[in-house]
Each structure stands twice: as C-alpha cells, then as structure tokens.
Design a protein around this nucleic acid. Structure first.
Lengths: 274, 274
DNA sequence: CCAAAAGTGTTAAGTGTACACCCATGC
DNA sequence: GCATGGGTGTACACTTAACACTTTTGG
C-alpha cells in the first residue's frame, strides 16, 4: 500500500556492519554527548500527507530518521547533514519544533533498535555501551520536501525506507509517535507562516492540488471558489501560459509561486486562509 | 530606573562561594552533559513588559537565569526547579520555545561569567574546567509570572536580580540577546493560544489593564470600545461586583478570568482578537 | 467644577461564506 | 454525449473598524 524507496544510509546505520566497534568508537569522541536529532520528513503525494520512516527489514517497528551532532557542528547543520545522508536532497526546508527531554528516554529511542540487533553485546567495549545506553535529549526537526525529489538508493544495509500516510502510521519505536504528533501539530500551526506549499509541491502545480494540500494538512474541506479567490488575492502564485495535460477531464491551469511575494505575505501570515 | 529585587540563589551560582571546587565537582557527575536551560521570565508592571535578569554586582553584563539538568530529571522539571530556586514561586507557567545549538556557543554563555570571575583558575580541577569550557546546547523556556508574586530574598552572593523593560535591555552576555528576542517573538505568536493574561496579571484586574497588556505584547494600540466588546464576547472574563478604587479619575470595574471558558476559548485561539 | 480616564452603541466598509452555472476533457 | 472535475461571479451575513458623548472620580 505504500511505496518502498531505498535510500542512502547515514552514519548512524553504518554502525550496523562488521567493523562496528572500531568505527563507532572513533565517532563517539566526535559526537556531542546527550543530544540527538530526530527528523519528521513530510512529503505530499496522491493527495496524501506522508512521512519517511526507516526500519530493518527483519524487524517490526519503524523509526524516524535520526542521528547525532558532531562537536564542531551547529545543531541545524547536523539536522541538514543527517537528512541529506538519508535522502540525497540538498537545500532542504527544515524547522526545529520541539525538544523531547523526559528523563527516562534512555533506552527508549533508536538505541533500542541497536540493542535488539544485538549490536551491543557482551564483547562490545564499555565505552560504546555507556554511550548507547546513556540518556539522550532529542531535538525534533520537521522537513518538507518534494516527494518526487527523493532519490532512490541501493539497499546497502538491509534497511527499509518508505513513505507512510500520516493516517496509517505503523508501530514505531520509543516515543516516536509523540514526536510525529508534535510535528504534525506544529505543521498545522505554521502552515500560514511558513512556505509549506512551495516546499511540498513541485515547481509547477495546479490550484486544485494546492487546495488539497491545505485540506490535508488542516484536516478540513474548503470551498473551491473561495479558495481560489483568496489564494489569488494574495498574489503569491502566478498562472502559467498553459495547463496540466494528460489527466482526465478538464485540464487545470498550472501555477508557480512568486517567491518574493510569497515570502512577503508569509511575514504577516496567511491566517485568514482557513 | 528599574526595581532591584534580591532573590534566592540557585545551584549554579552556589558555585561562587569558597568550597566551589568540591561542591561543584560533586554536581557535575549528576548533571546531564552538553545541555543547559535558559529562562526568559516575563512580568508585567506599570504598563511595561519586563524580564528578569541577573548579574554580579561588580560586573557590567547581565544574563538570563540559567542552570543544568540532573541526570534523572525531566527537562521541564529542571526548568521549573531552576525558576523556583530563583524566584521562590511554585506552579509557574512555562513553555519551551527554542533550542540554541550553534557550535561556538562554547565559552559564550553563562560560563563566560565564571571565567571572568576567575573562578576557573589554574588550580581548578581539570574535570571542572573541561565541564565549564565544553560545548552546551541550551534549551530556552519562557515563563509568565505575576510581578507582585516574586519574593524578595536576601542577597547571599552579591548578585543583582532585577526586572528590565523589554524596550531597555542592558548589555547581556553571550547570545542572550538572541534568546530574549526569540522568546518575545514566541510570546507574540502564542498570545492568542496561551493563557497569557491570566498568568501575567493578578487575579483581579480591570479591562484597561488587560488591554494595555495586549497592546504592550503586540506593540500596537487598540480601540478601547472594540477591545471591550470583543473581549467580553468571548465570555472568558467575568465582572466583579465592584471597582478598582483608589486611583484618580473614574474607577474601572474589576474582572477575573473564568478559567474554564478561558481554556476552552484558547483551544481554538483568540486570533480574531488583534 | 475641572481634568483625565472609563463606560457605552451605532454605522459604514470589508471580508467570509454559500451557492449555480458553464467549460474542457477522456472515455 | 456524458460523466467528471475545473473555472468563474454574485448576494447575503457577519465582523471589523471608525467614531463621540456621557459618567465617575480626585483634587
């Protein structure tokens, strides 16, 4: 029911091959202790809002893409790096939305997966064990990206990576459900203040497509005529010479965002837009 | 020009007395590494929005109240504890608003003050030096509290603690200016969704007072008649039998918030209220 | 009794909302 | 040619925004 996409692996999951101990121990010293990053990556496809989840092929639970911060790396740069490693996309729209800092997050996050994988065995160095089992505060970032831009990568480490409809999230590890919920709530609140449309839709799109994006995010239906009237009144989209052809029925006009006007309008918010 | 209030010291500033090394070394092991908390404490007094700042009496730069997280302590609990330690107030309204994670925050935050204080000298244990000079990601919380409820405490460690008008913030250390700005911006955005009025005003207040609070936070003036009409239409305040007496001129009616209706109304937002 | 702030109601302009018809396209 | 979705305009209701006079109070 959901599309499977194999993508490039990141540093974290590189730990899953043989020279795990050595390569990871080297990394530990370069990572900022106690802090991790979790990413909620939104995409829009076939009128559905989706998020990216990862899991090992032989496991049941999925998890959010996540990773650690290098000692000399800005938090936001780390989030960007992790996302680029996983999706191959550069210049991603990213926003920090919350820090999850419950004291008993220890053992409850991605590291759980590692333990299940028996990657932390008796012969694992104490230093690594301590790292993996220590408490982590995780910073949640959400990302918006064009569904079609995700590059398909070879499946190096038997890792599944796939899009999941936000209305059909499978079982996920740890507190990732809460993180996903918080990201969604934030997205709903910020939809009038952030360039959501521009980042989730391809460069050229139709007004019905844009309307469905809003309807999906806000979870309500909008009158077609009123949507167009209001959206056009903001002067943030410009109609292109011609239409989207190929579909059935009457062909809709194509539009693209006028980045300057869009940015300007977002400053004061499009809040009267439902 | 601003009111000086001496308040209780917290764990962090306890480091400033003689047995600094011993007591602090003990604490280091109980703290979560790499993570700190900074608090932007808002109060409202004499029609001015103010924030709490601390500084040593013989220093020039002020700083936000801040502290660390115990290993077994939830992030939010730590923020509450730190604030209670500093103001003596319990049950404080607190909201996380942003994480500041630039890589070169090292040496740029409160620890700067310690260095200036020559508290980290050559004879200071390496362990402590490393801790103090290491990189910290700081989680920003803002708090709303009734100006009059801040208890005045004895000045144990020669520390100034005072309210500052947000339009006249003195020089502050490190990136605290950016943190204050971000808090203000967040407050402005959330004023329609959080019980700002109830937490910044005393239990009983007048509509002109409430209006001035909104005007101050939003930075714009509002028509008196329209404000009252709209505010009353929400049914979130109820008029008390009588008026605020003692001031000059006509006495305004007193009101108090109807907590139930207030909470209900905030869920959907008071966004039509300017 | 005067100055300053507080209380109140009405109206015009603008905006949201509801709604119906025609057009284009593929089958 | 027909079913389906896309494009457009208008009327009504409601909300916002502008505005002036009277009342209260302390000095």
């Amino acid at each position: 029911m959901f599309l499977l996409v194999q993508i490039k692996q990141n540093a974290f999951f590189c730990m899953m091959n043989e020279n795990f101990n050595e390569s990871f121990r080297k990394k530990i010293d370069q990572f900022l202790p106690s802090v991790s990053i979790d990413l909620v990556v939104f995409g829009f496809h076939e009128n559905q809002l989706k998020i990216l989840l990862l899991k090992n092929k032989d496991k049941l639970s999925w998890g959010l893409p996540s990773g650690f911060i290098f000692l000399n790396e800005d938090l936001e740069d780390a989030a960007k790096r992790i996302l680029t490693e996983k999706t191959g996309i550069e210049n991603i729209f990213l926003r920090q939305f919350h820090v999850f800092g419950r004291a008993n997050r220890t053992r409850e996050n991605n590291r759980e997966a590692l333990l299940e994988e028996q990657l932390v065995q008796d012969d694992t160095a104490d230093e690594i064990k301590r790292w993996i089992l220590s408490r982590f505060v995780t910073v949640g970032y959400y990302a918006l990206l064009e569904y079609t831009e995700v590059k398909i990568r070879p499946d190096i480490f038997s890792l599944d990576c796939s899009w999941h409809d936000i209305n059909a999230i499978p079982p996920v590890i740890s507190d990732h459900n809460a993180i996903i919920d918080a990201a969604l709530q934030t997205l709903r609140q910020q939809v009038h203040y952030e360039p959501v449309g521009m980042n989730l839709l391809p460069e050229e799109f139709t007004l019905p497509e844009l309307q469905r994006l809003y309807e999906t995010i806000l979870g309500k239906s909008i009158d077609r005529r009123n949507f167009q009237k209001k959206m056009l009144s903001y002067n943030i989209v410009s109609r292109l010479p011609r239409k989207r052809t190929g579909g059935a029925y009457r062909s809709p006009y194509l539009y693209r965002f006028d980045e300057e006007h869009y940015a300007q309008a977002l400053k004061s918010g499009l809040k009267d837009l439902w």
